[in-house]
Nucleic acid binder design. Structure first.
Lengths: 109, 109
DNA sequence: GTCCCATGTCAACGGTGGATGACAGATCTG
DNA sequence: CAGATCTGTCATCCACCGTTGACATGGGAC
């Protein structure tokens, strides 16, 4: 079960903040991310990025001396959402994405 | 937002196992849950149940000397799902990309 | 080549969270 | 009432995680 690492990665507020930055910017270099995260230093951001990458929640693209990160919603993130929907299926009628998630499983190209 | 506690509660495998038991049984006493969780003792299960309850992921019903627990999908669980959908919407639909992640973030007191 | 920049990695420290056994409170039974 | 049951709480120990500064790596500029 690979979603264990994903849940663990999602548990840290700094890592969720990083995911928020990536969700807003689509793609970001490590330095650009670290500039927006003021609560911790660059080293911590780098470590968190590694955790997110190993967990399969973000993907990395190397270009010269830069490394660009972006959200990876096709891997363990899907397992996490599926698992949560299975557990909390009861009262989720009004949550955006609860039903459309099955549709989202198909690649939008 | 107090989805922080929910994410933290979801990070532990034992707690997710408890949620799985509750999702399958609908309602369960603390002792019945502890019987199905073999990895840790009864004390640990009780502590985990408290974490889940404080996080708002399960609700408690007291009946005599028993305490029955059940999934609560109407509270922070919804916030968690919403937040995850906002983050991992990239690559799925990616329509209104200007959804402010800060709205879902916790506010410093 | 040399120097600088972007980034990852290492060792160390401090804090936090989880597991356990012993104890306490509440409740039912006789 | 006494005794048994169900459960939560407390104190303790131990392990893991996060943060940091210093160092290493690798790619561009000159």
């Amino acid at each position: 079960m690979d979603s264990n690492m994903a849940f663990d990665a999602l548990a840290d507020p700094v890592r969720r903040e990083i995911l928020g930055v990536l969700a807003a910017e689509d793609e970001c270099s490590a330095g650009a991310i670290a500039e927006r995260i003021t609560s911790v230093g660059r080293t911590a951001v780098s470590t968190h990025l590694k955790v997110l990458r190993v967990a399969g929640l973000v993907s990395e693209r190397r270009d010269g001396r830069f490394r660009y990160y972006s959200i990876d919603s096709s891997g363990p993130a899907r397992d996490v959402l599926t698992l949560l929907h299975q557990v909390f299926r009861a009262g989720l009628q009004s949550v955006d994405g609860a039903v459309p998630y099955e549709q989202a499983q198909e690649r939008p190209a």
